[in-house]
């Protein structure tokens, strides 16, 4: 099977007072119609990786290949049409919509990108319906919507561009618990309906389990465990993955607080377990 996206030995570094290696030789692939989840604690390099996938971050080493072509850096030049089928949903719904442009207009820009690649075109209202929003919202501005509605509009805009690869950088973390699962589920359905690959980034393993075919667990810039989601959930091999799963609060009424993963950070979390990788 040809891969839609291939990330190979990607290294991302930030050069400030000290050099921070945010992503350290990470490789992963996404096939069309596949949902890959990337999980890990804050600061483990998930977002850096997502930004590098769409071309917002310059890799220090390694490559991001989309359909056999290297993803160009999102510079000041206009992005070529072949790469506008990579779309992204951002973490912060408040800054993902232009405050001065009506919602319908912003979705239309996504539709225009799809039409430029030869799509027959669609109406903004259809997309609002698909993400579960009333069609009257086309004439609203971002500040008139709630956070969850904004995120749905951002998803609608990204989907209206008919992406073949949708990168979602913690799209649900700014939402309340009740809408997190529904938005995540909706994203999976809509992406799969369109035959697109979905790279879903989250720190919430419980939700990821529900929507992802495969899961990649990152810790301090490295992949510590990867493979079929159910395997990882039911039988975690790497100590860090185990710690992540045990950190999910359970409504068991006993009142025990989950162990905070980053608090003590045992040395074993950093080890490489070959049997925890590419589990099938």
């Amino acid at each position: 099977m040809t891969e839609l996206l291939e990330v190979s030995d990607l290294v991302i570094e930030y050069h400030g007072a000290t050099v921070v290696r945010a992503v350290d030789e990470v490789s992963l692939t996404i096939a069309p119609g596949e949902v890959l989840a990337l999980v890990g604690e804050s600061g483990c390099g998930k977002s850096s990786l997502a930004r590098a996938v769409v071309g917002m971050e310059k890799p220090r080493a390694g490559a991001v290949t989309y359909r056999g072509a290297e993803v160009p850096l999102l510079g000041v030049r206009r992005r070529r049409a072949q790469f506008t089928s990579i779309q992204m949903v951002f973490q912060d719904p408040n800054s993902s919509l232009n405050p001065r442009v009506r919602v319908g207009q912003q979705i239309s820009e996504g539709i225009r990108a799809a039409v430029e690649r030869g799509d027959e075109g669609s109406q903004p209202e259809e997309w609002l319906e698909r993400v579960g929003l009333p069609t009257e919202m086309v004439s609203r501005y971002a500040h008139e919507l709630s956070g969850g509605q904004r995120q749905r509009v951002a998803i609608a805009r990204a989907l209206a561009a008919r992406p073949d690869l949708l990168v979602a950088d913690e799209p649900i973390s700014a939402l309340d618990a009740s809408s997190q699962a529904s938005v995540a589920d909706m994203m999976r359905k809509l992406a799969l309906d369109a035959g697109a690959g979905l790279l879903f980034i989250s720190h919430d393993l419980a939700i990821v389990r529900l929507i992802a075919d495969r899961t990649v667990v990152m810790y301090r810039g490295k992949v510590v465990e990867s493979g079929v989601s159910d395997l990882i959930w039911n039988d975690p091999r790497h100590p860090y993955t185990r710690a992540l799963i045990s950190a999910i609060p359970e409504p068991d009424g006993t009142g025990t607080l989950p162990a905070a993963p980053a608090a003590e950070a045992p040395e074993e979390w950093r080890m490489t377990l070959p049997e925890a990788l590419n589990r099938a």
Partner: peptide, 20 residues
Amino acid sequence: NYVMAGRLMGFSPFKTLRVD
């Protein structure tokens, strides 16, 4: 982010300046 989103949709630099 919305500027980035526009760029990802293939806005030219001047369209970004004008719209976003």
